[in-house]
Nucleic acid binder design. Sequence first.
DNA 1: CGTCCACAGGAATGACGGGCGG
DNA 2: CCGCCCGTCATTCCTGTGGACG
Length: 406
Amino acid sequence: MEEARGSLEVLNKVFDNMFLKSSIFRNRDALRHDYIPNHLPHRENEIKYVGEVVAPLLLHNKASNLFIYGKPGTGKTAVIRFVFNALSKKANELRANIKCVLVNSRLEGSEYRILASISRQIGLSIPFTGLATAEVFRRIVNHIKANNLYLLVALDEIDVIVKKEGENLLYELSRINENFSSHRVSFIGISNEITFKQILDPRILSTLSEEELVFKPYSSDELFDILMERAREAFHNGVCDPSVIRYIAALSASEHGDARRALDLLRVSAETAERGGKREITVECVQEALRKIERDQVNEVIRTLPIQSKVLLISILKNLRNPSAQHTSGEIYTEYRSLVTNLGLESLTDRRLSSLLNELESAGIISSKIVNMGRYGRTKKYSLSVPQAHIVEALKEGDLLNGLLE
DNA sequence: CGTCCACAGGAATGACGGGCGG
DNA sequence: CCGCCCGTCATTCCTGTGGACG
C-alpha cells in the first residue's frame, strides 16, 4: 500500500510535468518530420515547379503527370505535402472538387493496400482483406464518377513496390482515365532511386512521367538554414547556439545529406539536454544523441522481430564468436537448427531462413556479401552492421532467450 | 576445359482469414 | 448460411550459377 501510494505520486508528478513549461522546447512539434513549416528553405524552385504542374487542376483541366527523383531526406515528401496543403486550401476557396492523396508505397506494402489507402483518403471505406485488387480499383473509379471528383495522387517510394510486385498497378493506374469522359486523375510518382527509370516499361514511363524533377541532397550550408529555421520555432531563445546547429549540419551533410535525420538528431539532442537538466544544447548532447539514435533504432527493430528471426540472429552472433567459422549461410543454418530444437520450436527451412536473413539485412542489422569459393560452392558471408553489444542488449530485454548467449 | 560445390532466389503450393453474391 | 473468390504469409520445389579444382 505504502509502495503503491509512492508510485502514484511519482506518476502524478510525471503527468504534472507535462503541463510545466519546458525550459528547452517552445514547440516540440516543429521538429517532427510530418510537421509542415510555412517555409521550406532551398526548395522554393521545386515548390514553384510542382505548383505550376498541378495548377491546371484548379480549373478542372488536365495536370501533367510528374515524376520526382531524389535521395532520402532531400525534401521530396515535404514539398509534396506543402503543395498539397496549399492546393487543397485554394480548391476549397474556388469550390473546385479536388482531392489530394499521398500514399507511401513502402509503408503500405502491397498493391492492394495502396489502393485501399487511396480509397480511404477519398472517403470510400474498403475492407482490409477479402476483395480482389481489381474490385477495389473498380470501386475507386465508381466513387470518382459518383462524386464528380478530380484526383491528384502522389505515390511515394514507388520504386519499392514495383521491385516487389511488378508494374501491374502502375499500368492500371496509368490507364485509369480511360474510364472517364474527361481527365480525372493525375499522378505524382516519387522514387528514391534515379535508376528507377531504366527498369520501368517505356509505355508506363511516358504516361506517368510527362514532367520530371530531381532533388539534390542538401549541402551543409543548406542543412544549417533548415535547422536554424526549425530551431527558432522549436526552442526558447538562447537554448541552441548556432555553432551547435553548424556542427549537426556538417555531421549530417558529410554522412548522408538527409534533412530528416538531421532534424531527428537536433530533436534528440534537445531531449538529451532537457533530461540532463541543462538550459542549452551542447556538442556533448549531440554526440550522446548520435549514440542514442543508433541504439534506439537497433532496439526497436530487434524488439519487434518475430521469434524465429530472433533465434536466427542469435545463431549469427554465436557463429561470429566462433574464431574458426567462415560466417557463411550454411554455418548459420546449422547453428540455427541446433538452437531451435533446443528451444522446442519448429525448425524453418533454409529457403525461409535465407529470406529472413535478407530481411535482417534490409533492416540494417546485418550485412552480407556474395562469395564464390569455386569448387567449394557459392554462398554469402555475413557480418554485423551495428555494434554487437546493442544487439545483445536488445535481445535480452525481457525475453525467454536469456542465457543462450552464454 | 569441364565439373561440381553450396548455396541463392524465382515460382509454385498450401493454409488461413476474410468479403461477396445468392 | 454456403460456396466461391480474394490477398497474405510461410513453406516447398527446383533451377541457376561463378569459379577453383582436377
